[in-house]
């Protein structure tokens, strides 16, 4: 895909303060490109959730953004513990976040459901003990 624009971000797992940086940077790029506001909003919400998940569960990981004229794909890849039961994780309110994280207001069990809600397609590839890769797809022409 020679006409694909690709950006890579390291998601720093050591710091909550840095979580969200990749999504803010991505938002800026999409705005520069002239992507429709509602798509930018969805991506910034879903990607932020994904980043937070990677910090909480997986000590960070990689965020890659692929942009073509009609599709935006966000790939969030970590080498964390993996998701034991994806169906359960998709339920609103289900959370495996540790108590100290929940006390901070994170880990309310809305991460994956929100990511699905704020994307056109979501694909989860996960293996316990190996890691998780989540793809968020956005079809631009459909939403515009």
């Amino acid at each position: 895909m020679s006409d694909t624009l690709h950006y890579h971000f390291d998601v720093d797992g050591a710091s909550f303060a840095n979580a969200g940086r990749a999504s803010v940077e991505t938002k800026k790029l999409l705005r520069q490109l002239g992507v429709a506001p509602n798509v930018i909003r969805s991506i910034s919400v879903a990607m932020y959730e994904g980043e937070i998940n990677m910090v909480i569960h997986a000590h960070g990981g990689d965020a890659d953004v692929y942009i073509t004229e009609d599709t935006i794909i966000i790939i969030l890849k970590d080498e964390g513990p993996g998701i034991r039961n994806v169906e359960e994780a998709m339920k609103e309110g289900f959370s495996t976040a540790p108590e100290n994280i929940r006390a901070l207001g994170f880990g309310a069990g809305m991460g994956l459901p929100n990511m699905k809600r704020y994307s056109d397609e979501m694909h989860i590839d996960t293996k316990v003990g190996v890691g998780t890769t989540i793809e968020l797809w956005y079809h631009l022409n459909k939403q515009q």
């Binding site: 006409d3 705005r31 520069q32 490109l33 002239g34 942009i67 004229e69």
Partner: peptide, 10 residues
Amino acid sequence: GSPNMLSMML
């Protein structure tokens, strides 16, 4: 920003 996504992408 850009009014033309394709040219801005390039």
